[in-house]
Design a protein around this nucleic acid. Structure first.
Lengths: 373, 373
DNA sequence: TTGTAGGCGTTATCAC
DNA sequence: GTGATAACGCCTACAA
């Protein structure tokens, strides 16, 4: 420990501990490592451990990694940390990894294929032991790249058809089916859908859930009442709903593929002079923070974000300890959170229903002629 | 590179590059390192670089760290990543660090002194080159601990009186003063304050800004119209506003020390049957995501979160390259974002003003007798 | 059960 | 300019 005038300079090394305990560094190493402690006599092991504690010995992870070729570091790729979806997932991952002595290196890809490749390479250079990928693009060149390097991979919110990677996802399909069942239960018969991008597994799964939910409720899907957003954004929600309105909104409820789209739906309805939920019910997906503070508070599907993170980390840790364990594909059940944006459809009585729809049409026309923003 | 049947196995090392270029590993090392490249003849350097590129050589950071005792890693301590305040800051830090070949290790302390110490020790064990601390507690044992280890420190949103650490903060004082000026400009004369915890520098600075703003506008501070929250939470905002109401809300505007508190103010006003902004204007601080989607959209002070992160990383990088650079204390100017929650006080005309206040009092009594939640 | 020796991949410090 | 050599701190055959 390079003792200088009784003061500890720099870091305490294994040699210092060994010296203090009066043993050879190799013995100290064995005593300190739980895996090999059995090889050393109980008494000596105790002496070494005491010495280590008294010197506040911390093994140097670089030296250890250099030898063992494991960095105790896991790379985590996400699109963007400032998207409120990800912080809870990241925290879940970090907490679970930390408990096992690992740390996460988080990289933001901004949904950019090239940036993702760059981040991935950087992390490979840092010798991460594995990758947790929460990026949703279906193109698989990245996965190939990592898989070829024989680095363990865990997918988050993304399932590859061949099921060769362990993954943790929320059950998007089941969640959206629940949403439709909820609306059908309220009495809605004509339900529109602002679907997400179909090249993202979330968008795809939720759309499938919509179709299945409609079928299960014995309802027909009107093709003119389904619009596909090109991204999960307010702007796209607004655009899609305008399209719905332009096609003649025959629906009394709109299922949005996520909360951001739902915000756009709100905006479009407001613009068209339609009230939510009195005229149209709206449902989102994700239960984002503060979504309960909107007017009206948005009915949404809660996503166990944090648990998705801890489970993903858990799968990674399993993969890192026994490489042979079978591939697990885990789905976490979502939960429907009913708030003020859904209620029974307007005017169940025939006469009032007719009036209601008449009113809707009139407003629609106004909406169509309003300038696009 | 352990060439086996023409296929690259495992990792390419410096030796492989040297061999390929026909030079000694030491020379290859010098050629590859920009700092020492000048020591090598141009032609040889070129040969080495070509060899490295053709083999796709990636230096092993562990081996390098072991030798240089620098991990190119910076520890970042934050209270909680799921607090929407932090993701943009963290991203700013990560982006700026990444551009310089560093990575951030993020640790969540949950505002817990012990956890913070634990995280800090773990990071020290991983040999981080520096700490960026975005934890706001005023107690300084942690700083001492890190400073004693002679590890560079940069503070975020926190200034130590002695100014011994570089820091980046938003100018809380100026921001709140701006808020008061805005309200005074609208005609408000009696302004209440839901202040933050005074042991946090944010809470302290904003309260000072409130006092200065009032003084600057020539307004008096009514002590009964200032309540101190014990934490930056909706619940505390609610509690404090109830206290304000119980004391007889003489004010026509409430300045909350952050947006979470402002949400609590909204709730309390609603509970008391008071309308915002018709009866009472409300201002928050931070401009959190989606705060513009509230009813009414909250007037708030925008905090250049991302830039705080990049600047903090910048200060750290400067510190890491020239240890001797002078300590910089940086304040970033906030921006007032005026939305629907502020408007001129009700009833400028004498008669209507009296009616208005009468109404307020009646509602207040109802509020006081309502059960606490 | 413990000690010895060599090496993980890199860089710093010598020589040449 | 370049090559040789010795670390950095730890782990692990192998020998004793």
């Amino acid at each position: 420990m390079r003792v200088v005038g009784g003061l500890a300079e720099g870091h305490v090394t294994l040699r210092d501990v060994a010296e203090r305990a009066g043993v050879h560094p190799a013995t100290a190493s064995r005593a300190l490592n739980p895996e090999t402690r059995a090889l050393v006599k109980g008494a000596t092991a105790q002496r070494v451990l005491r010495a280590a504690r008294s010197l506040d010995y911390q093994p140097n992870p670089m030296a250890r990694s250099l030898k063992t070729r494991r960095s105790h570091t896991v790379g985590m790729l996400i699109p963007d940390l400032t998207n409120p979806l990800f912080p809870p997932i990241v925290r879940g991952v970090e907490d679970r990894l930390a408990a096992a002595g690992y740390v996460a290196l988080v990289g933001n890809t901004d949904n950019d294929e090239d940036r993702a490749r760059l981040v991935l390479d950087r992390m490979r250079a840092r010798h991460v032991d594995g990758f947790i990928m929460a990026i949703a693009h279906r193109s698989d060149t990245l996965l190939d790249r990592a898989a070829r390097a024989r680095i363990p991979i865990v997918l988050v919110n993304r399932v590859v058809e061949s099921n060769v990677f362990p993954s943790v996802s929320v059950d998007n399909r089941a969640g959206t089916a629940m949403v439709v069942a909820h609306l059908a239960g309220l009495g809605h018969r004509r339900i529109a859908c602002v679907a997400g991008p179909q090249d993202l597994s979330t968008g795809f799964g939720r759309y499938r859930g919509f179709l299945e939910g409609m079928a299960a409720a014995g309802l027909e899907v009107d093709p003119s009442q389904v619009v596909f957003a090109e991204s999960f954004s307010q702007a796209e929600g607004l655009r899609c709903t305008r399209e719905l309105l332009a096609a003649g909104l025959g629906a009394t409820a709109v299922v949005a593929a996520n909360d951001m789209l739902a915000l756009g739906v709100y905006a479009a309805l407001e613009e068209a002079g339609l009230r939510c939920p009195a005229d149209v019910s709206v449902v989102g997906f994700n239960d984002m923070p503060f979504i309960d503070r909107l007017r009206p508070p948005l009915t949404s599907v809660r996503f166990p974000h944090y648990e998705v993170g801890t489970e993903a980390a858990q799968l990674m840790l399993e993969r890192l300890s026994h490489r042979t364990s079978p591939v697990k594909v885990l789905y976490l059940a979502p939960e429907l959170v009913v708030r003020g944006s859904t209620e029974p459809p307007p005017a169940p009585a025939a006469g009032r229903q007719a009036r209601g729809r008449q009113g809707t049409r009139a407003r629609r026309l106004r909406a169509v002629t309003s300038p696009a923003s």
